[in-house]
Design a protein around this nucleic acid. Structure first.
Lengths: 237, 237
DNA sequence: TCCTATCGGCACGTGGCGTGCCGTTGACAG
DNA sequence: CTGTCAACGGCACGCCACGTGCCGATAGGA
């Protein structure tokens, strides 16, 4: 990459930025295994103190690194079609969760969280619960517009939707492909959708191309980066 | 039983059994943190070789230990009421996943699986997929008896049901209580149940009349704060 | 220009892993 | 009763990562 050209040997806040980037690069290359403080320090050409001065543990570093890449382009769209919006977002999130930068870091955090209940709570509060909340917001709007039944318990629905995706990407060995997302949405819409009872059309979505043209789920919204500040923005599902 | 009075110094296969038991005991006491080969060896008064001769790594030991305590709880009942059977099983599994013997071991395996794709595949095949399969079997029978719609995609349904439970118990911080299980089953039955549209009465088995009046006949939309009750009612009726 | 916090480098102690070696033990064969 | 041999407990080693302490160098502000 574009490593520091000369050698502006040391800075205060720029180092923090660089260390986060190095952590993500390292995670993308070597995965969770071999991802430690010393590895990051070596990779960045940095003393371990420089890391410990910023984060108390590897877990904290990982959380910040995760915020950096998991926060940005993750808001749900609202085209008026819940199912399409959810589908687009789920596919995008599923891809992200399985891809080099985010996947390994997420795995690392989850692994360490198994031995640290405090970290587990932080992980849940800072990421999982936030993701559920975004999902809940989106389907709540759909409920208000009449796309979903009024008596649907959307809190649980949001958890089920997000939980299934996390389960599949992090615990299962199956990929989050269109088939999986459609199956999940089939069940969700069958339960709480108000339009045509049989919106399902179980799987086999690949047999015929998506008829929709106007609301083509082409994920190319390219959300304008609101701000690239290092503030840990909440992610979405 | 407080055995091991004397010192029946060494055996062949009985040692294996004892080591599995010690591993579970140790996991129940110290949790995932501090659960390693040396810890097990010390606890069992055993040389590390005695462990390495049986399992190539801690992960393998944990998998075997997990099999020992997790295998017996996998069978669903079949009372003729899918929802009641699922509910009972989910509550039982949720309690087990959060309790000392199984919970910590499960967490340990999941943590190590994040760094080892082979272990992840084994974990999925040996446990997660098996649980899904049992669930699939049960709801498939329900589909045949007409309790579930014929066009329901039960494979995804089984994954959603199990995945949500695993997500909640292992990644989330919320307990698997009756509220959660009922919410999950509400969605499942609303999607694929055939019995009227009135989804979701906290069905306590139609077979036995529960005099309980606290049961909610209708899913109150006013689902308030997640009231975290710890196992208030026995699942059996 | 000087001052000082930050930095890189190095070393230390701790602790778990996985392996090798050695003397012991006990089940089984004769 | 005795011999044999594999399994065993104990010990030690090298390795590596962690978290900390110390020291001289450096850069950016006063």
């Amino acid at each position: 990459m574009t490593d520091t050209p000369a050698t502006p040997r040391r800075r205060g806040a720029a180092r923090t930025e660089e260390l986060l980037r190095v952590t993500l690069d390292l995670a993308a290359e070597v995965g969770y295994a071999g991802l430690g403080i010393e590895a990051v320090a070596r990779r960045a050409g940095v003393g371990k103190h420089t890391i410990y001065r910023r984060w108390p543990s590897m877990s904290a570093l990982l959380l910040d690194a995760l915020s950096r890449v998991w926060a940005s382009d993750l808001d749900y769209r609202d085209t008026g079609d819940v199912r399409a919006d959810l589908r687009e977002q789920f596919l995008r999130s599923g891809l992200a969760l399985s891809s080099p930068p985010i996947g390994p870091v997420y795995r690392a955090v989850i692994a360490e969280a198994q031995a640290d209940s405090t970290l587990r709570a932080t992980l849940h509060e800072r990421f999982l619960a936030t993701v559920e909340q975004r999902t809940l917001d989106r389907i709540t709007r759909a409920q208000r517009t009449g796309e979903l039944t009024a008596e649907a318990n959307l809190e649980f629905a949001a958890e089920v939707l997000c939980g299934t995706l996390y389960y599949r990407s992090l615990l299962s060995t199956r990929p989050i492909d269109e088939n999986a997302v459609d199956g999940l949405l089939d069940m969700f819409m069958a339960a709480y959708g108000t339009s045509t009872r049989t919106r399902a059309q179980t799987s086999h979505a690949a047999s015929c191309e998506t008829p929709q043209v106007g609301a083509e789920p082409v994920p190319r919204p390219a959300n304008p980066r609101l701000s690239q500040t290092t503030t840990s923005d909440p992610p979405s599902c």
